[in-house]
Nucleic acid binder design. Structure first.
Length: 662
RNA sequence: UGGGCUGUGGUGCAAUCGGUAGCACGUCUGACUCUGGAUCAGAAGGUUCUAGGUUCGAGUCCUAGCAGCCCAGCCA
C-alpha cells in the first residue's frame, strides 16, 4: 500500500501506482517470461539517505510483491570518488531497512572486461572512435541546448587506428584526459546525451575493488544499461533525470544486440525542512555544521537510526508517500507521524525529567521509600509493569509549574493539586526562591489516601505530571533535536538583488553558460560539482569516517533551559558555546545560500537530566517514551555511568499549541 | 526561439482508462483519559494550471496556450 486511497478499507484492493500498472501491462503482454527482477544500484560514494530508502523500498518491494528478485549492485565506475567504507555502510543500511539481496550482490566493476569487449565491438562496427579533443574542446564541439554540435576531427579514424589507440589507452600509454573513446551517434541530436557521448575516459586511479588493473574506466552511461542487461533486470527503476538517458541506453543495447530491460523513471523524494542533495549533505559534514553523516539531525539512514527511527517507520513512510512522476516535497510531519505511530505502539514508557525542579513533600516521612507500580506500555498490556521509587524529595519538570498560571494552564501552581503519575496527589503549599527571585524549589504536601494515583473520594485533578525520585534518579544527558533548517524550503534565500547563491545555482542552466556560480566554485574546490547526483549517486565524502561522535560541531547547539525559571542546584546545563568558525566556502563569497537557513535551535543539549532508575544499563539504540515528553533513544555516546538520550520526536503537545496561540 | 517530463484541497497521493472528486498527513472542533499522549466522533478546505472544443455527461478525450522540473561532466 503506498497511497492513502483505500488504505484503510480492509479487503479493498488498493490502487496501484503507475509503475505497477506498467509492470502489470508487461506481464499481461507476456513480456520478460513473466519475471519481475529489479535492482537497487547505488554508487558507493557516500551514505544513504531517506530518499534512497524510497528507491530501496520501491525496488525490493516490487520484487517481493511480484514474487521476483531484487539485486544490490554498486555502480562503481568512478574510482576517484568511491570507497570501500561506503560499500559497507550502504550494505548495512539496506539490511537495517529490512531488505535482503540474497546472493545477488554485484558490482559494475565486475563487468569491466565485458564492457571493454563491447566497446571494441562498437569500434569494429564503426560506432565508436578514439577522440583526442581536450575536455574543453569537447564541450565546445558539443554545441548548446539550442545549437547543434560539430563533429570531432577524429570522428572518422579507421577501425584499425581506433583499435590500436584504444588498446594503448588501456595499456596506460596516455595521460589522464588526453583521449576518450566516444560513441558515434549524432552531433546534431536534440538530446544532448546522443551527441557522441564519452564511453571511456583515462583515469590512472586505484579502484577500490579492481585496484590498478585498469587505467581507463567506463562512463556511467556506458555501464548502467548494460549492467542491467547482464543481470537480466526486467524493470530498471530510476529517477526522473535519467529519462533523457534512456534513448542512449537503448541505442547501446540495440547496437550490441543484447537483452533489453524496461526503464521506468519516478520522482525522487524531497522533504521539508531538510536537504536531500548529497552535495549539500557532504558540505554540512565537511563544514562542521553537523557532527557527521550520522548526526541525528541528518536525513541519512545512519542519522535517522541514531536518532531513534525504526526501519518499520521508514518503510511505512515510504509506502505512504506514494510514487509518481511529479517532483513534489513531502511534509516532514508525515515522517514524524510515522515514527510516533510505530513507537507509541512499541516503545516502553519511562519517566524522565529534563529540566529538574526540586520538590519536597513536607508531610512525607523522611527516609521512607515506596516502590510503586507503573505500566510499561498502555498500548501493550503484555509489556507488564515495573516499580518506580517514590520518596520525600522529587524532581518535577520546570515547565510543569507556574507561579502565576495562565488561563488553560492546569498543571501545578501555588495552592493547586495535581497527580504525580502512579504516585500521589500533591498540593503546592509554597515556593522557594533564589536571591535573584527565581523559583528554585517547591514545598508540597501529599494525600496519603491517593497512593497509586486514585482518590478514594472521587476527587479529580486536571493534570498528571511525571516525576522522578531525587535520591534514586540517574543523571543523564538529553539531546533535543528540531528541524535542521528553519524554513520548509532551505533553498529559499531572501537575499535581494544578486539572489541567493543557492538560487542562482538552481536557476542556471537554461541559457547560462557559466556553469560554476561563484559560490559553488568556491564551495566545490575540493572536487564535487554542484550537482545533486544521480539516483544513487552523490559526491563522496573526502573524509570517510567523518561520522563523528557526539555533537561537537561548529554549528552550535542552542543553550539549554527555557529561560524562565532557574534550575534548582544548577540543574540545567548550558550547551557549550564553541567558536563558530566560518567555513571556507562561505568566506569566499558573500551571497547567502541554504546554509543561512540552518536552524540555530536544531540541537539543544540538556546535560543534567534525571531518569528513573529502571533505565540503568539501557542498551545503546534502545528506545523509550519518556512520558509526556517524547520518544528517546540511547545514543552510542552513552557510558555505563552516564546515559545519553537522543530525542527522536516529541509527543504531540496540545498545551504547546494553546500557549503558542496565546 | 532544442529536447524530455510534469501540473488534482495547505502537503503527498487516488479516482475501476468518459459518469459527476476520495484517502492520508496537517489544521480546527468536541468526547474520553492517571501521558494536555493514545483513542473516538466531527468540521473546514478543491472552478482538478488556463482557454476553447467533442459529448447527455470531461480530472479523464481533442486543440491552443501558461507554468514548473531536468539535460550542454572525461560525475552518477
Amino acid at each position: 500500500m503506498n497511497n492513502g486511497n483505500d488504505n484503510t478499507k480492509p479487503g479493498a484492493a488498493r490502487s496501484r501506482n503507475f509503475i505497477e500498472e506498467l509492470i502489470d501491462e508487461d506481464l499481461r503482454a507476456g513480456r520478460y517470461e513473466g519475471r519481475v527482477h529489479t535492482r537497487f544500484p547505488p554508487e558507493p560514494n557516500g551514505y544513504l539517505h531517506i530518499g534512497h530508502a524510497k528507491s530501496i523500498c520501491l525496488n525490493f518491494g516490487l520484487a517481493a510483491q511480484y514474487g521476483g528478485q531484487c539485486n544490490l549492485r554498486f555502480d562503481d565506475t568512478n574510482p576517484t570518488k568511491e570507497e570501500e567504507e561506503y560499500v559497507q555502510s550502504i550494505m548495512q543500511d539496506v539490511r537495517w531497512l529490512g531488505f535482503d539481496w540474497g546472493d545477488r550482490l554485484f558490482f559494475a566493476s565486475d563487468y569491466f572486461e565485458q564492457l571493454h569487449a563491447w566497446a571494441v565491438q562498437l569500434i569494429k562496427a564503426l560506432k565508436a572512435y578514439v577522440c583526442d579533443l581536450t575536455a574543453e574542446q569537447t564541450r565546445e564541439y558539443r554545441g548548446t541546448l539550442t545549437r547543434p554540435g560539430r563533429e570531432s576531427p577524429y570522428r572518422n579514424r579507421s577501425v584499425q587506428e581506433n583499435l590500436d589507440l584504444f588498446d594503448r589507452m588501456r595499456r596506460g600509454e596516455f595521460p589522464d584526459g588526453s583521449r576518450t573513446l566516444r560513441a558515434k551517434v549524432d552531433m546534431a541530436h536534440a538530446n544532448m546525451n546522443m551527441r557522441d557521448p564519452v564511453l571511456y575516459r583515462i583515469l590512472h586511479a586505484t579502484h577500490h575493488r579492481t585496484g590498478d588493473a585498469w587505467c581507463i574506466y567506463p562512463m556511467y552511461d556506458f555501464t548502467h544499461g548494460q549492467s542491467d542487461s547482464i543481470e537480466r533486470i526486467t524493470h530498471s527503476i530510476c529517477t526522473l533525470e535519467f529519462e533523457d538517458h534512456r534513448p542512449l541506453y537503448d541505442w547501446f543495447l540495440e547496437q550490441l544486440d543484447i537483452y533489453r530491460p524496461r526503464q521506468i523513471e519516478f520522482a525522487r523524494l524531497d522533504l521539508t525542512y531538510t536537504v536531500m542533495s548529497k552535495r549539500k549533505l557532504l558540505e554540512l559534514v565537511e563544514g562542521g555544521y553537523v557532527s557527521g553523516w550520522d548526526d541525528p539531525r541528518m536525513p541519512t539512514l545512519s542519522g535517522l537510526r541514531r536518532r531513534g527511527y525504526t526501519p518499520e517507520a521508514i518503510r511505512n513512510f515510504c509506502e505512504r508517500i506514494g510514487v509518481a512522476k511529479f517532483n513534489s516535497t513531502v511534509d516532514i510531519a508525515l515522517l514524524e507521524h510515522c515514527i510516533r505511530e510505530d513507537l507509541n505502539q512499541h516503545a516502553p514508557r519511562a519517566m524522565a525529567v529534563l529540566r529538574p525542579l526540586k520538590v519536597v513533600i513536607e508531610n512525607y516521612p523522611e527516609g521512607q521509600v515506596e516502590w510503586l507500580d507503573a505500566v510499561n506500555n498502555p498500548e501493550e498490556p503484555a509489556a507488564g509493569t515495573r516499580k518506580v521509587p517514590f520518596s520525600r524529595v522529587l524532581y518535577l519538570e520546570q515547565d510543569d509549574f507556574r507561579e502565576e498560571p495562565p488561563p488553560k494552564y492546569y498543571r501545578l501552581s501555588p495552592g493547586r493539586e495535581v497527580r504525580l503519575r502512579y504516585g500521589y496527589f500533591i498540593t503546592c503549599t509554597s515556593v522557594v526562591k533564589s536571591a535573584a527571585g527565581e523559583v528554585v524549589e517547591l514545598r508540597c504536601t501529599y494525600d496519603p489516601a491517593t497512593r497509586g494515583g486514585d482518590a478514594p473520594d472521587g476527587r479529580k485533578v486536571k493534570a498528571t505530571l511525571h516525576w522522578v525520585s531525587a535520591e534514586h534518579a540517574l543523571s543523564a544527558e538529553a539531546r533535543l533535536y528540531d528541524h535542521l533548517f528553519s524554513k520548509p524550503d532551505p533553498s529559499e534565500v531572501a537575499s535581494p538583488g544578486a539572489g541567493g547563491a543557492d538560487q542562482s545555482r538552481d536557476r542556471e542552466g537554461a541559457g547560462g553558460v557559466s556553469h560554476d556560480a561563484t559560490v559553488d566554485a568556491a564551495c566545490q574546490r575540493q572536487g564535487p560539482r554542484p550537482s545533486d547526483g544521480g539516483e544513487a549517486g552523490y559526491e563522496r565524502a573526502t573524509a570517510p569516517g567523518a561520522g563523528g561522535s557526539g555533537p561537537s560541531h561548529r554549528f552550535q547547539p542552542v543553550e539549554g533551559g527555557s529561560g524562565s525559571s532557574q534550575p534548582a542546584d544548577g540543574a540545567v546545563s548550558r550547551g557549550t558555546q564553541a567558536s563558530s568558525s566560518v567555513p571556507s566556502c562561505l568566506r569566499a563569497s558573500e551571497p547567502r545560500d541554504y546554509k543561512s537557513n540552518l536552524n540555530p535551535h536544531s540541537l539543544e543539549v540538556v546535560s543534567t537530566c534525571f531518569v528513573e532508575p529502571s533505565l540503568r544499563g539501557a542498551a545503546v539504540g534502545s528506545r523509550y517514551q519518556f512520558e509526556r515528553l517524547g520518544y528517546f533513544c540511547v545514543d552510542p555516546d552513552s557510558s555505563p555511568e552516564r546515559l545519553v538520550f537522543n530525542r527522536t520526536v516529541t509527543l504531540k503537545d496540545a498545551w504547546a499549541k494553546i500557549e503558542k496561540k496565546g
